[in-house]
């Protein structure tokens, strides 16, 4: 018996791969659904901060991600746009990552159309420019010099949504949906800290722990971490809304749970095998 368990401890990693694949495919194919409890915390803080903005405020959303992190960040983009637009807050958006432009557009135009919001009046997408932090610092003194036109080449000066927005200081909040560098940290360093603008955001679950310190120093007002953060936000936006649109994040959470269980099961098996081997070797001495 001991040898069987010990063999388990040296399992070929391909067995683990197969089980992981099944753990994700089966719940998705069967469309399992588990309820999400909303926690107090960084997700709620971001929601509340946006809820407290007066109508007509201007918020900058920076789409700092690409398709590889879409599963986590795109639902956030959608949920945030829904929240901002229903509260009649104007959205100025841009991307520090090249692929963020079209992803951002997808979210903004879909939500905008469903809520009857117009491009150039209620929202605009300025597009992408390389430069990360450098770019932000330039925008601190003059946005129009960095983005004379939006992503489609339309002059920004004439857009109603940009009236009164000349530099970063004219914005009420910056939200960065960030998959790495440049991303939230860049915005905190180059905009939040320098020009004293509230910075909030969403990130992949992986970078969330790294951003926690900024939450406690107040450099970040709130944070959506990974699919769970997106799920939280989706759930909060849906409260009090009749016939809410389907949530993208909620669907994946079931598969998430099962896969977590599988990994934890592996860790337990690994440890039982390890301990039993140690015990046997210890006994043989």
């Amino acid at each position: 018996m001991a040898t069987f368990i010990e063999k388990l401890g040296n399992l070929d990693r391909r067995v683990i791969f197969v089980l992981m694949a099944l753990a994700v495919i089966i719940p998705l194919a069967l469309r399992m659904n588990l309820p999400i409890p909303i926690d107090k915390g960084p997700s709620k803080n971001l929601f509340d901060a946006i809820d407290a903005l007066p109508e007509g405020s201007r918020v900058l959303i920076s789409f700092d991600y690409d398709p590889s992190t879409m599963p986590e960040l795109q639902p956030m983009a959608v949920a945030l746009s829904q929240h901002l637009m229903t509260r009649d807050i104007r959205i100025v958006s841009l991307a520090l990552w090249p692929m963020g432009v079209s992803l951002g557009n997808e979210a903004l135009s879909a939500v905008g159309d469903s809520l009857g919001k117009e491009e150039y009046v209620d929202w605009v997408n300025l597009g992408y420019k390389i430069g990360g932090g450098v770019l932000i610092v330039r925008m601190g003194s003059d946005i129009q010099s960095v983005f004379p036109t939006d992503y489609g080449g339309n002059p920004v000066d004439e857009m109603p949504v940009m009236q009164g927005v000349n530099k970063l200081g004219d914005l009420d909040m910056i939200i960065s949906l960030s998959a790495g560098d440049p991303g939230i940290e860049t915005w905190i360093m180059m905009a939040g800290d320098r020009y004293n603008i509230a910075v909030g955001g969403g990130c992949t679950a992986v970078s969330a722990p790294q951003l926690y310190p900024y939450l406690s120093t107040g450099q970040l007002i709130g944070l959506l971490g990974g699919l769970k953060g997106a799920g939280d936000y989706e759930t909060m936006v849906r409260i009090g809304v009749e016939n809410p649109p389907p949530g993208i994040a909620i669907a994946g959470m079931a598969a998430q749970s099962v896969a977590h269980l599988v990994i934890m099961l592996f860790i337990i098996i690994g440890n039982i095998a390890y301990l039993s081997e140690k015990k046997r070797k210890g006994g043989a001495k």
């Binding site: 007066p54 003194s141 003059d142 009164g164 000349n166 530099k167 200081g169 004219d170």
Partner: peptide, 9 residues
């Protein structure tokens, strides 16, 4: 009106 602040550049 409620912004309360504007910088002329």
């Amino acid at each position: 009106p409620i912004n309360g602040r504007k910088t002329d550049n």
